[in-house]
Design a protein around this nucleic acid. Structure first.
Lengths: 337, 337
DNA sequence: CTGAAAGCGCTAACAA
DNA sequence: TTGTTAGCGCTTTCAG
């Protein structure tokens, strides 16, 4: 069942059907109604590929997820998908875990004829002007979310939404230090994260330094943004390092794993050992005890990413590099010593 | 940059380029290498829409998510996307929350030229043979996951992966009853869930009946698969119904909300009041105390859904209706009274 | 207001 | 082993 069939049944030309399909004004109401009725009757649904092939206006938006598909990204994704669908776009998701952020991006755009891409995570550093241009040439809107983009060169149609990762991590660490903690371990994602993970690590180090606390390499743990892995890492660590009284986990999922490990070892969370997380996932609030965390405005990040993209695509609005504020939410997982 | 440009630069015909693109064997190695080199040089990426338009083999797989995008589905989705990508397919996600499961499905398939769809949730009951045929006519593979499909009519290419929802809910309730609980409240998603939610509700009622416990309408709460909403519902409920000693939540997220509410009201989880969840999310295990839950084999569900679909699409394997086993995982959230 | 026809980028049948 | 060519279903001029 294609446009030709419909045209034939309706006794009109294909272009008329096409006009109806695209809500062109210059079709007689009568004709339009007849065509519409016939389309409904035959369960006709236009072939997207053909439209995309023809149009520049593909109505395809890609979401490119780098690395671990963690719960924080899942939450963002969920909200983004709602916004994208509401605006009448199709959402195509792709993952990758190689190093070539830009190459992957370019391939994704070309292959899927995307009008815009929202990138969740990724490093996007060390980018030559050339790489940027190879993307800009494609004339698509790009929104980088939760990415540490060092260079915010003013490539048109390249926006970013981020938080001040270093500062936020600094605050988290400072919060623990103010509570009197001297031996604070940090729970990172993985060692090769050169983006946000690295920045948060720097914030942690900076706080230690400013308060004249020694940075100890062995206080750096890796939990791969995973409950279980964080649990195991903390469990093994705690049996060796009984002097540590606080943990800073750079994601709430890892904070939960850490909390459970602490509890299972017979310590009391937020009493014997403090934990601060990062992200502001719902679970931090609903954990028992609730976990103090640095809340990223995820609703706003998701909403804004779609808005910014649609702004670029539909209203030719300028690109922006937005930094949103985080907020330290106090739970019951930290105590003064 | 299209196939014609590449052909021109390479000094060959478009079909040769096409053959290289599709790994057809009958191209001289020399020619293939040259073409490949030129493609790389020019960052050529084929236009997916054109391929899809031409081929029946679109390599597009849709994932249709019904209703709330809950964490359980997010987890499935994550795993499904890995499988789909590994097999070289593109994954297109769509949500819906209307009642017309089949209409939505049909439109999705036609519009996106899908070869297969994995449906997460949805009612899919009350389906006429006609509706089924309207899908079967499309000749795509359909996998229904976490759907309560009453009628497993043998429509070819229609598979399903489910658990025995009624039995599982029965077991959960029975578990609480065996622990001596008499006043057991249930936390459902929403009232209009005619699929799995309804079945679990039936299992709960059945257990009550078999153990001669009165079913009380007012012990039915709705948490909309959401931490916060479950929290509030339970909090409000508990201030009125102090006789209730146990909750059965049909999702772990709601179990967590309930747990927090209980704890915040000054009760001890798994001591004063027991909770059993459903799904077997990681968080149930890592909650404090860990929450007893009915574990759905989500890894297997995700894996199997992709396998079954690829089996139908690529090896013409028969459709199947698989019921996977659930497992009651004991945590620390239930106690005998 | 409507129809005829060109062509988007690609694949595959056919011819060489 | 390779090139030529006819569409896939749609949008969009351009004429009427």
């Amino acid at each position: 069942m294609n446009i030709k069939d419909i045209a034939q049944i309706a006794g009109v030309g294909v272009s008329t059907v096409s006009r109806v399909l695209n809500n062109h004004p210059d079709v007689k109401t009568e004709t339009r109604d007849k065509v519409l009725a016939i389309m409904k009757e035959n369960n006709y649904v236009p072939n997207n590929s053909a439209r995309v092939l023809k149009q520049t206006n593909t109505k395809n938006i890609g979401v490119l997820v780098r690395g671990v598909f963690n719960p924080f990204f899942s939450e963002l994704l969920k909200k983004i998908s709602v916004g994208v669908e509401a605006a009448g776009y199709t959402m195509i998701i792709e993952h990758y875990s190689n190093e070539d952020d830009i190459d992957t991006l370019v391939g994704f755009i070309k292959e899927k004829r995307l009008q815009g891409v929202i990138c969740l995570g990724g490093n996007f550093i060390n980018l030559s002007d050339e790489s940027f241009e190879s993307v800009t040439a494609l004339n698509v809107g790009i929104i980088l979310v939760s990415v540490d983009m060092r260079r915010q060169s003013n490539f048109k149609r390249f926006s970013s939404i981020s938080i001040h990762n270093l500062t936020a991590a600094y605050e988290a660490t400072q919060y623990l230090i103010h509570k009197g903690h001297q031996n604070i371990a940090i729970l990172l994602g993985d060692a090769c994260d050169l983006g946000i993970g690295k920045r948060r690590y720097e914030g942690y180090k900076k706080a230690l330094k400013e308060y004249n606390l020694a940075f100890k390499e062995e206080y750096t743990l890796y939990g791969y943004f995973d409950f279980e892995k964080a649990y195991k890492a903390v469990q093994a660590f705690l049996t060796k390092h009984k002097e540590v009284t606080a943990f800073f986990a750079i994601s709430d999922s890892m904070a939960v794993g850490a909390a459970k490990a602490i509890s299972d070892l017979g310590y009391q969370i937020g009493k014997d050992i403090s934990i601060i997380g990062f992200d502001g996932m719902d679970i931090a609030k609903f954990y028992n005890p609730s976990i103090t965390t640095i809340k990223q405005p995820k609703e706003e990040m998701a909403k804004l990413s779609v808005e910014l993209l649609l702004g670029i695509l539909e209203r030719d609005l300028p690109n922006q590099h937005v930094f949103l504020d985080v907020k330290l939410l106090e739970g019951g997982s930290c105590t003064a010593i």
